[in-house]
Design a protein around this nucleic acid. Sequence first.
DNA 1: CTGTTAGCGCCTTCAA
DNA 2: TTGAAGGCGCTAACAG
Lengths: 333, 333
Amino acid sequence: MTTIYDVARRSGVSPATVSRVLSGRRNVDPALAEKVQAAVAELGYRPNGVARNLRRSSTNLWAAVISDIENPFFTSLVRGLEDVAQTEGYHVVLCNSDEDPAKEAAYASAVLTEQMAGVVISPSSTADGVLQLHEAKTPMVLIDRKVAGVEADSVLVDNEHGATEAVRHLLDGGYRRIACITGPPQVSTAMDRLAGYRAALSGAGVSYDADLVRHADFREAGGFAAMASLLGLAEPPEALFVTNNLMTVGALECLAERGLRAPDDIAVVGFDDLPWANLVVPPLTTVAQPTYELGRRAGVLLRERIADPSRPPSTVILPTELNIRATSTPRTR
Amino acid sequence: MTTIYDVARRSGVSPATVSRVLSGRRNVDPALAEKVQAAVAELGYRPNGVARNLRRSSTNLWAAVISDIENPFFTSLVRGLEDVAQTEGYHVVLCNSDEDPAKEAAYASAVLTEQMAGVVISPSSTADGVLQLHEAKTPMVLIDRKVAGVEADSVLVDNEHGATEAVRHLLDGGYRRIACITGPPQVSTAMDRLAGYRAALSGAGVSYDADLVRHADFREAGGFAAMASLLGLAEPPEALFVTNNLMTVGALECLAERGLRAPDDIAVVGFDDLPWANLVVPPLTTVAQPTYELGRRAGVLLRERIADPSRPPSTVILPTELNIRATSTPRTR
DNA sequence: CTGTTAGCGCCTTCAA
DNA sequence: TTGAAGGCGCTAACAG
């Protein structure tokens, strides 16, 4: 491996000067600089990033600890983050926590031992990793979900409001018996969206019926099972609000399997868009989230946090958008 | 920051012994080991990964350079890779090349300066980065696509055969005027799948008609435009074979926009599954690829390449599977 | 089995 | 403006 010493020798200067030329700072005699550049080119020299990291005691890595890399919601978010990282000279290390607190904690450990510059994390239920990172004062941005008792930079959407809008839309359609499939009680988005559901009901004078609520795991199979359970009720719901995309897919599959259709047999609104929602027939009404923007804003906050670790934490709340399509708008009603 | 020296002092041994205890190798007196562990716990010591990397002159990072992180094909693949990485003690750095040779080359540079342990890469059209990495002898696995003139470990699917099967299925359905929307001519998968299309036609004695072939960019918008162009023909096609998932989505959207339906107005087969293909109505016939397995096998090859850099390159070719659903099977014909 | 020692490659004072 | 030198934290030789 060619080192900075080889370049120095070749160009007849000291390693310090080579370093200065390469890092572009300080004043260096242009003639020397040129010699150095020439030597770099001739030798095909490439600085050793690891050595630089050790010396500077910081790396140019960001970790993205997310709970399901196969969910398009997170994919798009990661892309927004990666775009910021790239322009800021960072790389993104992908950490798939699978909603598993143990995995999350393991990744948090890795973040610390590998001296990563910062973390963007969507906390799992018990948020073990978040607490660890918070304590270590690692630059961290929470995304998608809050963690009780942790004051940190966050990028969220207005979950309660988005849910309220969705359910109000169903109420406006004349539906009264509206079910809700939401996520684990430990996850803030699950509870915030459920709260929005309740708020909409109470705003319309419809009483809350716990029998119509199911908690699942934010995955397809969970949505399927919850739907099946709701259909088993003596008096099944007329309408359904599902608080994430994959569970919506599961619910729709359950309906399809039983020959039931939205919106004629049951109206459906999902939280979070599906990539080709308009190809699903009938097109699915959703509460869309600005996923790319969520990731992008997280990247921006992280950069700012790294630049100034002492600034007070800030929270960005982005709006959702109700996309009314066919599954909530029957022709006859 | 607490260092290995602090632990050594605290436990009354040398730093070397601490290192030995922590890395779990060599025999160390259990009594000493225990003391060390105690000191580690008391001090909350955490080894500095960067220093270790410098000393060992290798990191525990793998790069995944892929051409479109938002395509579920790559997402699933990355997940397979990440699962192997995790069990092998590596982390995956996500690099989204966006099909842009310049970005690919920039990431290849980063791989080298950051001394990453290996790379899994889906080459962009000109494969600038691949050549750079190949020359530098970085452990590398090509995935999804070949690169002319580069002998390297590869994980591919049997593209030509998969395409032939798909088109033969359409021919069996009685279709003769079959169009093909494929990717950029520089990308091996685009050409291999096109070759499969031609092989099927010629096997059935149907002559090849270049007017029925379109090259697009493997993205949704490209598929849409290509479909529009095909529909503009004096004599539009009766059936369509599209060589990737996103372009299929684009083509279907174009059809939907014009009130055309598959399979009644035009039969459709896509290459590569869509996550909720069965919710798309009518369900889409596809050539499914084992995406997760592609990523997993790439991880396995990379590990082996790192363990033995001199072994001859090997190529894994995985089978595709034709999933016949509704868009290629009209009721009346 | 344990300790001493010498770097890994770079950057950054400090002195000239 | 440039060079000399120390050290970031760790581990692998080498001695003991």
